[in-house]
Write a protein that binds this DNA or RNA. Structure first.
Length: 501
DNA sequence: GTAGGGCTAAGG
DNA sequence: CCTTAGCCCTAC
């Protein structure tokens, strides 16, 4: 849509409701108004003629079509927006979506909290009844659940539709997720706007204050703020990580989500500079993650709608929690208290503690002995047979492991993946990694990788490259050495089967 | 970063 | 007790 510099445009330039006016003193505004009114030329070539005038209220940008450095952006109604306003609108939309997501998350947390209080007390005591309990799944679309109705009552009906929809999307939140969120935008948009302090106003102010380079100083400020915020977040993350291996299993997912939000936030703050009010919300989000961990670990694990992933996760985590318990007295740096509720919340009944006490004691002794092993030469086979672990291994532990093994073949690859770097960073120095069996998919990928890279390899196989090659299949904790070891085993296996024939 | 060999958990 | 498979350490 091409405008001439007509009266209509002038009127649009100096509306009393202009956002800038709210943030600048009258004198400044008056001066600026005068400048804008005089502005009847292209801001690039400084000439008159047919100009594209930005439709954003208060934006004085006018450009020749040919002076645009890129294709002009129009909205559905054909209104032209200058690149800055166009970007600003996109950011605004992103913010709305984020607000929606956070609202949904908060609703989810409330929902889960209520269920934890109401439902799980008896779940813990009755193992079998857990599977019959109402579905506490985080997934949507399951209509046959009483809790859902309770939730609707608790949170008020109007929003539930949108909140419920978005909660599922958050689980796989990415750009695609955000895009799909748009269809729900209108539903909660009003509330999101209400919570926001008219973003457009701040945008405009920054643009004006920054002069020709819009909000340059503010931009830097925002980057600094953002970095400090990021540091805070990562500090918090570290604290979580110190809580033990359990966190690691979910940390990668946490990081993914946080990372995604951080990126969004960076984008926002770089252009708007003031999202300090969202810091609290960021914390809320992190808190949400923590809550989810707790739930995945204990309360949700059995009542979930047959979600094997949760089930398996909780099984593993029980073992890990146990390890954490052993470590705590010895650990020179005491982990934060965040895991205390984890231990006491649901899995640690009196009987359980008593049953595991002996085992923990033995394991602790073994772990104490481990540092000596590290520095000493290889142990003799006699030492090997004296391993206390073997002597005190329990039948139910065996059963759990075998069950775990069965599940692992098909399910391991679908678990949230933990980064090997995170693992080495956050695990105690002498702790041994949890044994992770190879899936068929991983083996196939390994074969494929070796096949692909062995041709180009002169002497040594590039395990690192093979790992990168199959990163999407290999578990995130796999290292090149693991690949090498696995290949070694596979070769040994092959040769042994050949020998037998 | 990789190879080789030893250690160890887990299962039979 | 043996075997298997994954993990770890050390040398290169």
């Amino acid at each position: 849509m091409i405008f001439s510099q007509d009266d209509d445009y002038m009127q649009r330039l100096v509306p009393e409701t202009c956002d800038v006016a709210h943030n600048l003193n009258d004198e400044t505004v008056d001066n600026m108004d005068i400048d804008w009114i005089k502005e009847d030329t292209c801001i690039r070539c400084n000439r008159g003629g047919d100009l594209l005038v930005c439709s954003e209220i208060g934006c004085p940008v006018a450009l020749h079509y040919k002076c645009m450095c890129c294709n002009p952006k129009f909205d559905d109604l054909g209104h032209f927006y200058c690149p800055y306003c166009s970007y600003k609108r996109a950011i605004l939309e992103t913010r709305h979506l984020r607000k929606n997501a956070m609202l949904a998350k908060q609703a989810l947390v409330n929902f889960i909290d209520k269920n934890v209080v109401a439902g799980n007390g008896k779940n813990q005591k009755d193992g079998e009844s857990q599977s019959k309990e109402p579905d506490l799944s985080l997934h949507v679309g399951n209509t046959s659940r009483p809790d859902h109705e309770a939730w609707q009552r608790d949170d008020g009906g109007g929003q539930n539709e949108s909140v419920q929809d978005e909660e599922g999307q958050q689980n796989e939140r990415g750009d695609a997720g955000l895009a799909s969120n748009r269809q729900h935008k209108i539903v909660v948009d009003d509330e999101a706007c209400a919570n926001t302090s008219t973003p457009g106003a701040s945008d405009n102010v920054h643009f004006r204050e920054g002069g020709i380079t819009p909000g340059k100083e503010l931009l830097q400020d925002s980057i600094i703020k953002d970095k400090s915020k990021e540091a805070t977040i990562s500090e918090a993350r570290c604290e979580f990580a110190e809580d033990g291996e359990k966190i690691q299993a979910e940390d990668s997912q946490l990081i993914e989500n946080s990372e995604h939000e951080r990126i969004l936030e960076e984008e926002d703050s770089q252009h708007e500079g003031i999202f300090e009010e969202e810091e609290g919300q960021e914390e809320v989000l992190n808190a949400c993650h923590v809550n989810e961990e707790v739930l995945a670990d204990g309360t949700l694990h059995a009542s979930n709608e047959g979600s094997q992933d949760y089930l398996e996760l909780s099984e593993e985590n029980q073992g890990k929690t146990e390890d954490e318990e052993q470590m705590q007295p010895e650990a020179p740096i005491a982990p934060s208290n965040a895991n205390v509720p984890l231990e006491t919340s649901d899995t640690d009944t009196e009987t359980l503690s008593a049953r595991h006490k002996n085992r923990r004691f033995k394991r602790r002794a073994r772990k104490k002995a481990r540092p000596q092993n590290v520095n000493s030469p290889r142990k003799s086979s006699s030492q090997k047979s004296n391993s206390p672990e073997k002597n005190f291994r329990k039948p139910n532990e065996k059963a759990a492991t075998s069950k775990n093994k069965k599940i692992s073949a098909s399910k391991k690859a679908k678990q949230p993946r933990e980064s090997p770097k995170q693992f080495t960073k956050t695990t105690l120095p002498n702790a041994r990694r949890k044994r992770l069996f190879w899936t068929l998919e991983e083996e196939d990928m390994l074969k494929e990788g070796v096949h692909r890279f062995s041709a180009s390899a002169k002497k040594n196989l590039p395990w690192r490259r093979i790992l990168d090659f199959g990163r999407h299949v290999f578990h995130a904790t796999r290292t090149p050495i693991d690949l090498k070891d696995k290949w070694k085993n596979m070769m040994a296996k092959d040769s042994s089967t050949i020998m037998r024939r």
